[in-house]
Deep mutational scan, measured.
Amino acid sequence: MFKRLMMVALLVIAPLSAATAADQTNPYKLMDEAAQKTFDRLKNEQPQIRANPDYLRTIVDQELLPYVQVKYAGALVLGQYYKSATPAQREAYFAAFREYLKQAYGQALAMYHGQTYQIAPEQPLGDKTIVPIRVTIIDPNGRPPVRLDFQWRKNSQTGNWQAYDMIAEGVSMITTKQNEWGTLLRTKGIDGLTAQLKSISQQKITLEEKK
């Protein structure tokens, strides 16, 4: 169930391209415009997507990853294993993690069937560096609404905000991946996880038929 919630949630996290980005210092504006741009692209490019579902990787690479804190999220997933990894191991892992996100997020976007969304009203940021933004996803086919909290983090150097995690039903996506990959990290280390991520990233994206 959580895996499905995570995939549905990713439908609204794909941010804007650099040329049309919203105010990078306001995570609420980023979330709002990102959702609108993403849904528009999914709707307008269905012919290309249906002809070649792996085209979704391109959308992810162009529109999402430049505005997601990939390395920060990847380091959180590694936890204690990050500090013990060599620079070469980290570089290989982050490259594999990025390719994994292209496949995983692309597969999530393949679930698009006309969903709509509501974003919580903007709250004062103050001096906060981590801000959760509640998004409610509404399914046109009558499924119950899904309420999610996207975690946005302020870059201490640039002042810009980027998304790095999502919490559904009190469970963090980062925590879920830590639990899912924990045994592999304990037995085969970061190299074993890197190899698995490379394998997963090679899987073809498949479209979910409308139910």
Rank of each mutant, 00 (worst) to 15 (best):
1 M>A: 00
1 M>D: 00
1 M>W: 00
2 F>M: 14
2 F>D: 00
3 K>G: 01
3 K>F: 05
5 L>V: 05
6 M>S: 01
7 M>K: 05
10 L>I: 06
12 V>R: 00
13 I>C: 08
13 I>A: 03
13 I>V: 06
14 A>N: 09
15 P>E: 08
15 P>A: 08
15 P>D: 08
16 L>E: 03
16 L>R: 01
17 S>C: 12
18 A>D: 15
18 A>M: 15
18 A>T: 14
19 A>D: 00
19 A>Y: 03
19 A>M: 04
19 A>P: 04
20 T>V: 11
20 T>N: 13
20 T>K: 09
21 A>K: 09
22 A>M: 14
22 A>W: 08
24 Q>C: 12
25 T>E: 12
26 N>S: 12
27 P>W: 01
27 P>A: 09
28 Y>N: 14
29 K>H: 09
31 M>Q: 06
31 M>D: 00
31 M>S: 01
31 M>H: 06
32 D>I: 07
32 D>C: 07
32 D>A: 08
34 A>E: 12
34 A>R: 03
34 A>D: 03
35 A>G: 10
35 A>K: 00
37 K>C: 04
38 T>N: 07
39 F>L: 02
39 F>T: 03
39 F>C: 01
41 R>V: 05
41 R>E: 03
42 L>I: 15
43 K>W: 10
43 K>D: 11
45 E>Y: 04
45 E>G: 05
45 E>S: 14
47 P>R: 13
47 P>D: 05
47 P>M: 09
49 I>N: 11
50 R>Q: 10
51 A>I: 13
51 A>S: 13
51 A>E: 13
51 A>Q: 11
53 P>F: 04
53 P>D: 15
53 P>G: 12
54 D>M: 13
56 L>P: 06
57 R>M: 15
57 R>C: 14
58 T>F: 06
59 I>C: 09
59 I>N: 02
59 I>M: 09
59 I>E: 03
60 V>E: 00
60 V>Y: 03
61 D>M: 04
61 D>T: 05
62 Q>F: 05
62 Q>W: 03
62 Q>A: 12
63 E>M: 02
64 L>M: 03
64 L>K: 01
65 L>K: 04
65 L>Y: 12
65 L>D: 03
66 P>E: 12
66 P>C: 05
66 P>K: 03
66 P>V: 04
67 Y>G: 05
68 V>M: 15
68 V>Y: 02
69 Q>G: 11
69 Q>A: 04
70 V>L: 05
71 K>C: 00
73 A>L: 03
73 A>P: 06
73 A>M: 06
74 G>I: 00
75 A>E: 01
76 L>R: 02
76 L>C: 05
77 V>P: 13
77 V>Y: 11
77 V>H: 13
78 L>S: 03
79 G>C: 02
79 G>T: 02
79 G>L: 00
80 Q>P: 14
81 Y>P: 03
82 Y>M: 04
82 Y>A: 01
83 K>F: 02
84 S>W: 06
85 A>R: 03
86 T>D: 14
86 T>N: 07
87 P>N: 14
87 P>F: 11
88 A>T: 07
89 Q>H: 05
89 Q>A: 12
89 Q>M: 09
89 Q>I: 04
90 R>Y: 03
90 R>V: 04
90 R>S: 05
91 E>T: 07
92 A>P: 06
92 A>Q: 10
92 A>K: 09
93 Y>V: 05
93 Y>S: 03
94 F>W: 10
96 A>R: 04
96 A>N: 07
98 R>I: 04
98 R>W: 04
98 R>Y: 12
99 E>I: 14
99 E>W: 06
99 E>C: 15
99 E>K: 04
100 Y>G: 07
102 K>F: 14
103 Q>L: 15
103 Q>V: 15
104 A>M: 15
105 Y>M: 02
105 Y>A: 00
105 Y>K: 01
106 G>L: 02
106 G>S: 15
106 G>H: 00
107 Q>Y: 14
107 Q>K: 05
107 Q>R: 05
108 A>H: 03
108 A>P: 13
108 A>N: 04
109 L>V: 14
109 L>S: 14
109 L>N: 08
109 L>Y: 05
110 A>Q: 13
111 M>P: 09
113 H>T: 13
113 H>V: 10
113 H>Y: 11
114 G>W: 13
115 Q>W: 01
118 Q>R: 13
118 Q>F: 10
118 Q>M: 12
119 I>C: 07
119 I>D: 14
120 A>M: 10
121 P>R: 12
122 E>P: 12
122 E>M: 06
124 P>E: 11
124 P>A: 12
127 D>M: 05
127 D>R: 05
129 T>M: 10
129 T>N: 12
130 I>L: 07
130 I>A: 02
131 V>N: 10
131 V>S: 12
132 P>W: 01
133 I>R: 02
134 R>L: 03
134 R>S: 03
135 V>I: 05
136 T>D: 04
136 T>Q: 14
138 I>T: 08
139 D>I: 15
139 D>H: 08
141 N>H: 10
142 G>S: 08
143 R>F: 07
143 R>A: 05
143 R>G: 08
146 V>L: 10
146 V>S: 07
146 V>K: 02
147 R>T: 03
147 R>W: 02
148 L>Y: 02
148 L>S: 05
149 D>L: 04
149 D>V: 04
150 F>D: 01
150 F>N: 03
150 F>C: 07
152 W>I: 06
153 R>W: 01
154 K>I: 15
154 K>V: 07
155 N>K: 06
155 N>C: 01
156 S>A: 03
157 Q>E: 04
157 Q>G: 04
157 Q>Y: 07
158 T>M: 07
158 T>A: 05
158 T>G: 07
160 N>Q: 11
162 Q>D: 02
163 A>F: 00
164 Y>T: 11
165 D>N: 04
165 D>I: 00
166 M>N: 07
166 M>G: 06
167 I>R: 07
167 I>N: 06
167 I>F: 05
168 A>I: 15
169 E>P: 00
171 V>P: 00
173 M>D: 00
174 I>K: 02
176 T>D: 00
177 K>I: 14
178 Q>M: 00
179 N>R: 05
179 N>V: 07
179 N>L: 05
179 N>P: 00
180 E>F: 01
180 E>C: 03
180 E>M: 04
180 E>W: 01
181 W>Q: 12
181 W>G: 15
181 W>H: 15
183 T>E: 05
183 T>Q: 07
184 L>I: 09
186 R>F: 02
186 R>C: 04
187 T>P: 02
187 T>W: 08
188 K>R: 10
188 K>N: 12
188 K>C: 08
189 G>D: 11
190 I>D: 02
190 I>M: 10
192 G>D: 14
192 G>C: 14
193 L>T: 10
198 K>A: 10
201 S>G: 11
201 S>Y: 09
203 Q>P: 08
205 I>F: 15
205 I>D: 13
208 E>M: 13
208 E>S: 14
208 E>K: 07
209 E>I: 12
209 E>K: 09
209 E>Q: 08
211 K>P: 12
